[in-house]
Amino acid sequence: MKKIIAILFLLVLSYGIYLSINSIPFGVSKTKVGNYYNLNGVKDTGANNIVTAVVLNYRGFDTLGEVTVLFLAVLGFSTILFTMKKKKSDNMPTPPSLILSIGCKFLFPFVLLFGIYIFIHGHLSPGGGFQGGAVIASAFLLFYLVKPSEKSSKKSFQLIESLSGMAFIVIGILGLVFGNYFLSNFLPKGIAGKLISAGIIPLIYIFIGIKVGSELTGIIDRLMGKNNEKQVK
């Protein structure tokens, strides 16, 4: 019964969507602001990657809010799982196979390095703090797969995360002091295409990378159920 109603409603909805997306042409330039960003982005910000320029310069304040949302979600996540009891079956994990353990141990530093590369080159090539942070988190995921009993220091994660979040705001306030407005690009822009260019953008992206990396790692860490032994006792 519920299925029939659902399918009926969805059919009507699909028809409505069909009607409305008919009026959105595909493959045509639609926004003026996008054009503006493309034409003036390099000149304004000094970053080769326009997406990065938009994320961190034109709409840097949005990103700050977004990082806050991320932080709050992770906070809620940890709060919900704070008193979770450890299952007994977790005490005796089956050891990982040889290929997995060797491969992951071998890959871990390279994946980590790749993540760092991604967020350092955020203003030059595709990638940036968010992607790099995710890659770092997946590196830690590999690490945990190999050594499920390994304990990571939760405190240090939190410290890194908070410090990098604070650094973002400090840079913003420095922009307020040296420039005209919050998050203004007060450092010299340099030559577009060089690694050290685009003012504060690579700096912020590095902090975002560290922050996102440590947050996502924290989620995985918590969900793996390793840090709970202390709280149970």
């Binding site: 330039s29 996008g34 997406v51 938009v54 991320l70 979600a73 996540f77 947050e215 996502l216």
Partner: peptide, 21 residues
């Protein structure tokens, strides 16, 4: 257009955190 890309970039990261929650 770079604008939707920038927005989606942040949306993906938020989505993972909310999904985790």
């Amino acid at each position: 257009d770079p604008l939707p890309q920038a927005m989606v970039l942040t949306a993906i990261v938020i989505s993972v955190a909310t999904l985790a929650m």
